[in-house]
Computed example of a mutant assay.
Amino acid sequence: MTPQWSVAYREEVLKLATWCSENNLALNTKKTKEIIVDFRRHSTDLAPLYINGEGVERVHTFRFLGVFISDNISWTVNTTAIIKKAQQRLYFLRVLRKHNLDSSLLLTFYRASIESLLTYCITV
């Protein structure tokens, strides 16, 4: 038996697809991802989602506007990606410092390339 919320969800997706076609918009199902956030102890395995006859890929994690979102609402994947990028950029900061670059320029580089990365979407 299909859960009530699943039926409502699929109806909303169908309404979205209909609205898009009526307003001359195309849904690119190859770029569309489905993520299911379910914290119940006994989650049911749902049937795949289809839009205009094409299957939608179900994922556990995806990137949206530079932020990784996972189905368990954990920030582990996002934090790991940010740390990796920050470490790569810190290497360049060390190279610049090694070549005796002025401290004001080092600070500018840090704020532009590292601090901005660390503070992006921090309110989330």
Rank of each mutant, 00 (worst) to 15 (best):
V124Y: 13
E11P: 00
K98Q: 03
K15L: 15
T108Q: 11
F64S: 11
Y110V: 12
T119P: 00
A26W: 08
Y120C: 06
T44S: 08
W75K: 03
I69D: 00
Y120F: 15
L93M: 09
G66L: 14
T119W: 05
D45P: 01
S6V: 12
N52D: 09
E34S: 06
A47F: 04
W19P: 00
R40D: 04
S104D: 11
W19K: 08
R111V: 09
T61L: 08
V13S: 02
P48K: 11
L101H: 07
M1V: 09
I73F: 11
S21R: 14
L96K: 06
T61K: 04
E34N: 07
I35Y: 03
G53D: 05
A8R: 09
L49G: 01
T44F: 04
L105Q: 11
R63P: 00
N28A: 10
A26R: 10
L117S: 05
Q87Y: 05
V95S: 05
E22L: 15
F62D: 03
I114Q: 01
F92T: 01
D38G: 04
K15C: 12
T44M: 12
I69C: 02
W5V: 12
M1W: 08
L25W: 03
V37Y: 14
L65Y: 10
N52R: 06
R58F: 14
H42D: 07
S43H: 09
N100F: 15
D102L: 04
L46V: 12
T44A: 07
L118E: 05
Y50P: 01
V59T: 04
C20P: 00
K84R: 13
N52V: 06
I83C: 10
D71S: 15
V67R: 07
S43E: 09
T18P: 00
L27W: 03
H60T: 13
S113Q: 14
L117C: 10
S116P: 00
T108R: 12
A26C: 06
V59L: 09
L14W: 11
V124E: 04
K30T: 05
P48H: 10
Q87F: 10
L49A: 06
L16E: 07
Y9P: 00
E54C: 12
L101C: 13
A112S: 13
V7W: 02
I69F: 11
T108V: 13
P3E: 13
L117N: 05
A8W: 06
I83H: 03
L105Y: 10
N52M: 08
V7S: 05
N78C: 04
F92R: 00
H60L: 14
A81F: 03
R41A: 08
C121E: 04
L105N: 11
T29S: 06
A81D: 07
E12V: 14
T2V: 12
L93Y: 02
V13M: 15
L107M: 15
N78G: 02
E115L: 14
